[in-house]
Amino acid sequence: MASMGDTSPDVGRFARLQDQLAGYGFLAPWLIGFFVLTLGPAVASFYLSLTDYSGLNAPHWVGAENYLRIATDDDRFWTAMNVTFTFVLLSVPLKLLFALGVAVALNKGLKGLSLFRAIFYLPSLVGGSVAIAVLWRQVFSGDGLLNQALNMLFGYEGPSWISNPSTSIYTLVLLAVWQFGSSMIIFLAGLRQIPKDMYEAASLDGASPARQFFKITLPLLTPVIFFNAVIITIDAFKAFTSAFIISDGTGGPIDSTLFYTLYLYQEAFTNFRFGYASALAWVLVVIIAFFTAMSFLSARYWVHYDD
């Protein structure tokens, strides 16, 4: 039997009854969870996406109508797509760059590494909370901290970044980039795994630090870059709390912070269009799956694996 994660090739062939019982006994909680909370709901959600279910009435079959409406007759869907993609395409590369840059700087054997690491990591631990969203709302408001500082330093009277539809999304991008710490830690761990003697060999060959970075560090780090990119992208698609708090749950001003998840939430739990929201959910799943699949497909062209 071919199976991943097996270390003994005879699993299944000689396994005795008590082994089966023990295995499934320990796996039981996960199995129940998988069927009742993951697989079942996933199937149900797909079914609901083909109905007009509202949570109150029995679902009526409407076929592909929800999906058709999403594609052809839902301006807010396209707004949400626009907002979400803007957010993903800006925040993911910026976050990666920041995390990588700081990690490389920290990896130079500087004193105080653990202190800097802690400082940079803290925001990603608290960043998803309501408190930070509240703080962000104040910092970027018309008379908030940022504008006070701008005024004090440069005498510049800034606008209200939050309530201006053309800038509000960037405050959310900034909030995401602010949380680069956990990716940075993964990069640091990856940098540690690069054998020191590679750099020593490269210096003996006369390679400059810049050349070492592009010819050794970066190629050997590609698996970690890939891992981080996938994780950050999925996270970015799922962002919710910050937009909800900053816009009072509306996605405003003028839907400029209407994250896809926020739109989904409104359709499901404000308007109680469970069927339609299910269709929205599946569209999101497909988008994320598409992005993940593309990343994995592209990986073979740029990710360097040892084995």
Binding site: F34, P41, A42, S45, L48, I234, K238, S278, V285
Partner: peptide, 16 residues
């Protein structure tokens, strides 16, 4: 399931 976004199962879970 590590990769799967929770949104896919959100509504049926809620109904359940």
């Amino acid at each position: 399931t590590l990769m799967m976004p929770q949104h896919a199962v959100l509504i049926p879970q809620y109904v359940l």
